[in-house]
């Protein structure tokens, strides 16, 4: 990815992320979140993480945001949150978040990273990731499946009107 393309995409991503947290209507926030996630998937392509790119679009932008939109519309919460946060709170939170970003920026710019090395064929492909998942990370993978099962059962039980 060349520098100009990166800067344009980064600016768009930051704008979309700001839209997520500043929109008063949660539906617009969810739509801005889709844009943010889709824009971030472009960086995954640039970093040659092709499976992660596909998962980002399918799982995040597809499934999770649709779930958000579904709940927002089911509960009809658009009318909420008319009052703006106190100006003092906005200023202090913005200052804190800015300091956080500045701290990382300082640490990152003071470290001299080597330029990214070339990677072999198939880097980031499903076959390569699957090999790692089912060998080195097998235990974590199985625990993840248990976690998802627990989440399914938990969501069904919580969603019922009467347990």
């Amino acid at each position: 990815m060349n520098a100009v393309l990166f800067l344009v995409l980064a600016a768009l991503t930051i704008a979309a992320a700001l839209a997520v947290v500043t929109n008063r209507n949660p539906v617009y926030s969810a739509l801005a979140l889709v844009s943010t996630l889709a824009l971030m998937s472009c960086f995954f392509v640039a970093l040659e993480a092709y499976l992660i790119w596909a998962l980002q679009l399918v799982v995040y932008a597809g499934a999770i945001v649709v779930l958000f939109l579904f709940v927002i519309m089911l509960l009809n919460v658009q009318r909420e949150e008319r009052a703006l946060p106190a100006p003092g709170a906005v200023v202090s939170v913005a200052a804190g978040a800015g300091l956080l970003a500045l701290g990382v920026a300082r640490a990152v710019t003071r470290t001299a990273f080597a330029s990214m090395p070339a990677v072999g064929d198939g880097y980031g492909s499903p076959a390569h990731l699957a090999r790692r998942l089912f060998t080195d990370y097998l235990v974590s993978f199985e625990i993840t499946s248990v976690l998802l099962l627990v989440a399914i059962v938990g969501a069904v039980v919580l969603g019922k009107r009467r347990v």
Partner: peptide, 10 residues
């Protein structure tokens, strides 16, 4: 870092 900071602010 910038995106994380925006998330923290939100």
């Amino acid at each position: 870092a910038v995106l994380f900071a925006i998330g923290v602010g939100g």
